[in-house]
Design a protein around this nucleic acid. Sequence first.
DNA 1: GGTCACGCCGTGAGCGCTAACATTTCCTCG
DNA 2: CGAGGAAATGTTAGCGCTCACGGCGTGACC
Lengths: 338, 338
Amino acid sequence: MSAAAGPRPVSIFDVAKRAGVSHQTVSRVINDAPQVAAATRAKVKDAIAELGYRPNRSARALAGGALKSVTVLTTDTSLYGTAETLRGIEDAARAAGFSVLVSVMDPDQAYSEADLLGRLPHDGAAAIVIAHDETTVRAMRALHERQPGATVATCGEHQEDRDADWLISLDDRTVAARATRYLLDMGHRQVHYLAIPGTAGRRTGWSDALAAAGITAPAAVESGWSVAAAAEAATALVADPAVTAILCGNDDLAFGVLHAAHRAGRAVPGDLSVIGFDDYPLAAYHVPPLTTVDLDFRGVGRGAFERLRAMLEGGPDPRPSWRSPELIVRETSGPPRQ
Amino acid sequence: MSAAAGPRPVSIFDVAKRAGVSHQTVSRVINDAPQVAAATRAKVKDAIAELGYRPNRSARALAGGALKSVTVLTTDTSLYGTAETLRGIEDAARAAGFSVLVSVMDPDQAYSEADLLGRLPHDGAAAIVIAHDETTVRAMRALHERQPGATVATCGEHQEDRDADWLISLDDRTVAARATRYLLDMGHRQVHYLAIPGTAGRRTGWSDALAAAGITAPAAVESGWSVAAAAEAATALVADPAVTAILCGNDDLAFGVLHAAHRAGRAVPGDLSVIGFDDYPLAAYHVPPLTTVDLDFRGVGRGAFERLRAMLEGGPDPRPSWRSPELIVRETSGPPRQ
DNA sequence: GGTCACGCCGTGAGCGCTAACATTTCCTCG
DNA sequence: CGAGGAAATGTTAGCGCTCACGGCGTGACC
């Protein structure tokens, strides 16, 4: 929407008149169509430059041209994982000439299908859902059901969809099991889990590993997303001298636990081993540096976009190009003291 | 773009036929126009629901309806300040029924005006620039020059634009001076500054305060945006026993300094006081908790959107509704030891 | 009973662009 | 040198919607 005044923006016809050609020729030039004589092309380009013409995306979309836009649906763009995934999508989208629409949903609201679809610019529009919680997982499902071809979701947490070709996800389950196993191998008798809301993969990996070692998993401790919530949720756990190892749903929670442990006077990693998830940039520089899991969110965002694009344009399915999750052992984990 | 197959999406005409009215009446219903009989309205709404009709935004935009979209231009959506500002814009935009387009720019690239404008969906489109570095500041200027009415920029760093009505910004200069003054009042003889690239306000506030106290400011130490870069950039500073207080361009840098100080065996705040900027959620839970400055990015994002909307719709200029920057003293700052 | 007003609804045009087809131009070759 | 054909350009229609009108019916009022 143009503000207040300003003359009508220049259209393809203005350019055509200026260059002395038909509007269709101008269209061909701006779309790099082959069949245009070099001299004509130059004339048109000059006219475009002189007039400061810029194509109108709405008109283009309407006329049936390749729309080239993706809508990203998610709940919280300021969470590290989400922000990085978004970044990956944006990078890839920009490189491919797509524009990115971001639509943020309220994690506490139940959306109807209409609400969801209303967020897309038109029926059948391409979308990517960054799904970390119930709301987004539901959205991902609904969207996929409604428009099977044009939807891709990232980091979905539900096992049953894991292998679906429209879902891109990091295998946090296996690496959670690995992290748990690592703690067990260090000599810990039990590993506790501080859970972020709604992430099944990590939780399952943790209990799998415990089960494989013949250990009955304790109840996971539920936390909110924030550092504050984690510090709060972990106070009891941290105060219990029998607890020697805590796996956390992400690095924020790990920082919260570290904080709580410090308050409770428990030494890390002497009294307590703490492992996070996500490898925030800060993790390596925390005092002490945090043992965590590297998760290539940006790569997965790129991957999601590439997959979407392949679906859209019918190209071959691109090969996954992101790093596998990996445990990074730093200084908040070690053998139990005794 | 619709994927592969699928029948033509349902249009306003399909709904009209189904409801036995004209397309224009349908248009009136979906736009909540007043002059429609209740019975007709109900019929149309039923038809819409049965057919699963959803208006096409491109067509709407093209036909001259209120477009209701904002493009946000910025460099790095995963930086805390940027992410929060974006979040604020999104919240406000969603509430007003606007959709949000995000366009990420490369901080190391010089963009031509054409490049910049090409990121907007059409000529004269509304845009907000989140400007933290040179690239975005330049973009903000260029955009404002080209379409004075429809551009608002957030957190611009250049003094001369500070009072422009199209620029929303937090007064980090004054609070930087306050933080510096606070350190001086604690007894520090000198305050050093570790700078993020391109932020004039904080740097100026710092040197102002020093000058006001009759102290010659040392050269600011330049750092990159990352914790790693900060830790690296601060090594010499931290190793110098004469340095007792460091003000940092943001919390990431402060964490880097803290890390470097720890490595160098200097106690905080005993040997060294460190102050950050931004008040990351983590700052309060760091060990020790970080003294920093609360900056209401989310509020400023909201404010930027409201201002833009007022410009667009000609409403009254909304009153600023964000918190003023405030120094939050925690445990990384105190009097020098001796 | 005619006029006017008003509430409700329909018709036509056109936003800026692209797809499909029609037409012209120009070169090639027998 | 004229036919044939490809290359280059023009013409027309229409995407889905909104805007500006115009038309029709009902009721009020003189």
